[in-house]
Each structure stands twice: as structure tokens, then as C-alpha cells.
């Protein structure tokens, strides 16, 4: 008779092994970010990839998020005549939550998948091994530039997204809901604190790190063939998205714990 605890134990051990492997990969990847030689060309390529080519999709996400926020809060708040708060709701929601989270999720889909597919293909076609035989450490050449680019560039992208999102809210409020433009802008600024924006950008940086880490990790450990790469890509996107949502809660708790307690 089979011990019913056995599969549970096996799953638990597999989980621990994966966590250990991921932790070791993370530590090694981060340590290579600070040790020369540095691959400037690779870094530049990734910076352009993340900082520039994700702008359209993140910008579109932000503008629609801002627009729908204005519309939703108008219809909701009109019930208790608090339409005046729309500008605040839009700017706070965008900078603190929706900018980083929606932007991060879009980037996880775009960048996480691309990285896992690229590195996974390199793994299964032995290009990663070829790097080693050519005196190039693949962690340093492939992983470190991506981690740096993700961590540094995503906050910039999300900052742009914040502006676009607020602008989306402004468009709907002014042109559809008939708000006075200068009043709306004044309301936007009045209650906005630096911490609202900064917390969002710190989140974005964390999400950029998590997304690139998942893309690299799953690509690097990709199994054989096209199927293995496909699986690595899916895993990268799913795990990055879940981690983003998880860390979003944790970071929010850390940033605003005193507001919650008080």
C-alpha cells in the first residue's frame, strides 16, 4: 500500500529544491552585476529593449487605465456628490497602484516571455555552452545586463506611464465629463505627495527585477527542444505575474503601514 504522505513529501522536497536553485541563481546573477567585466553592448541592447520598445504597450495601458478610472469614479462618486475627488483618485491610483502593477504585468508578458524564449533557445541550441568555451561567463553576459536593465529602466517607463495615465484621466474629465481644466490639474497636484510617486517607482524597480529574473531563470534552465522553450516562456510569464502581485502587496504594506495602523 502506498503511503499517502509520500507524494506530499515529494512535492515539498521538489519545492525546496526549486527554491534553493532559484535563490542560488538570484545571488549569482546579482553578484555578477557588480563584478567586471561588464558587457556594455549587451546592457545597451537590453536598455533599449525595455526602456524604449515597451513604451507603446505600457503607454496604451496607462492611458486607458486613467480614462476608465475617471469614468468609473465619476459614476460611482456622483452617488454621494464627491465628483470633486476624481482628480485625486486618478492620480493616486495611477501612481501608487495601477501604473506600476498594470505596467509591470504588461512588461512581464512582453519582456519576461522574450527573455525566456531567447535564453531558452540559446540553451537548447548549446549557445550558452558555446559562451563558456569562448571565455565568457553566461551569467555575466546574458543574465546580469538583463537584471540591471530591468531594475533601472522599468521605473523610468512607469514614470512616463504615470504621466500618460493622469493625462488619460484629464482627457475624460475635461472633454467628456465637463470639468474645468485648470481646476482638475490643481486638484491633481494638491494632494499628491512625493511618496505616492516614489513608492510606485520603487515598486516598478522591484517588478522590473522580478520580471527579468524570471525570464532569465526559466530560460536558463529550459528543457530540450521547442516544447521546453515554450514551457519556459509560459512559466516565466506566469511566475513573474504572480510574484509581481505578491510583492505589490508586501511593498504596499511596508510603505503605507503607518497610514494603515494610524
Amino acid at each position: 500500500m502506498m503511503n499517502p504522505l509520500r507524494p506530499i513529501g515529494r512535492a515539498f522536497i521538489a519545492f525546496l529544491a526549486t527554491s534553493g536553485r532559484l535563490a542560488a541563481f538570484t545571488a549569482l546573477g546579482v553578484s555578477h552585476c557588480f563584478r567586471p567585466p561588464f558587457y556594455g553592448r549587451q546592457l545597451l541592447r537590453q536598455i533599449i529593449e525595455i526602456g524604449f520598445f515597451t513604451l507603446p504597450v505600457v503607454g496604451l495601458t496607462a492611458i486607458f487605465a486613467g480614462m476608465v478610472l475617471a469614468l468609473q469614479s465619476y459614476t460611482g462618486f456622483a452617488r454621494f456628490s464627491a465628483e470633486g475627488a476624481i482628480a485625486n483618485v486618478v492620480v493616486l491610483s495611477i501612481t501608487r497602484e495601477l501604473g506600476p502593477v498594470l505596467g509591470g504585468l504588461m512588461v512581464a508578458g512582453r519582456i519576461g516571455a522574450a527573455m525566456a524564449a531567447e535564453i531558452g533557445t540559446m540553451r537548447v541550441t548549446e549557445q550558452v555552452d558555446a559562451l563558456t568555451t569562448l571565455s565568457t561567463n553566461p551569467m555575466k553576459y546574458l543574465v546580469a545586463p538583463r537584471l540591471i536593465a530591468g531594475t533601472v529602466m522599468l521605473p523610468l517607463v512607469i514614470f512616463v506611464a504615470d504621466i500618460i495615465g493622469v493625462f488619460g484621466g484629464y482627457l475624460v474629465s475635461v472633454y467628456k465629463l465637463g470639468f474645468n481644466p485648470s481646476n482638475y490639474l490643481q486638484n491633481t497636484w494638491e494632494f499628491l505627495e512625493p511618496m505616492d510617486v516614489i513608492s510606485g517607482l520603487v515598486k516598478a524597480s522591484m517588478f522590473g527585477f522580478l520580471t527579468t529574473l524570471m525570464g532569465c531563470y526559466h530560460g536558463y534552465h529550459s528543457g530540450g527542444g521547442a516544447q521546453g522553450v515554450g514551457k519556459a516562456t509560459t512559466n516565466a510569464v506566469v511566475s513573474a505575474s504572480i510574484l509581481i502581485l505578491c510583492f505589490n502587496y508586501i511593498l504596499t504594506l511596508l510603505f503605507f503601514s503607518k497610514d494603515v495602523a494610524g
Binding site: 548549446e126 549557445q127 555552452d129 558555446a130 568555451t133 571565455s135
Partner: peptide, 20 residues
């Protein structure tokens, strides 16, 4: 190990060229 690898060259069975 990296120092040792400086003196080796390898032709892979499927070439393994960097396609980027």
C-alpha cells in the same frame, strides 16, 4: 576553470552559432 578554458576551442555538433 575559466583560465583553463582560455586555451581551448570547441566546434559544437550543431555549430551553436550566436544567432543574434
Amino acid at each position: 576553470r575559466e583560465d583553463i578554458n582560455r586555451q581551448v576551442g570547441m566546434l559544437f555538433q550543431a555549430a551553436a552559432l550566436f544567432d543574434s
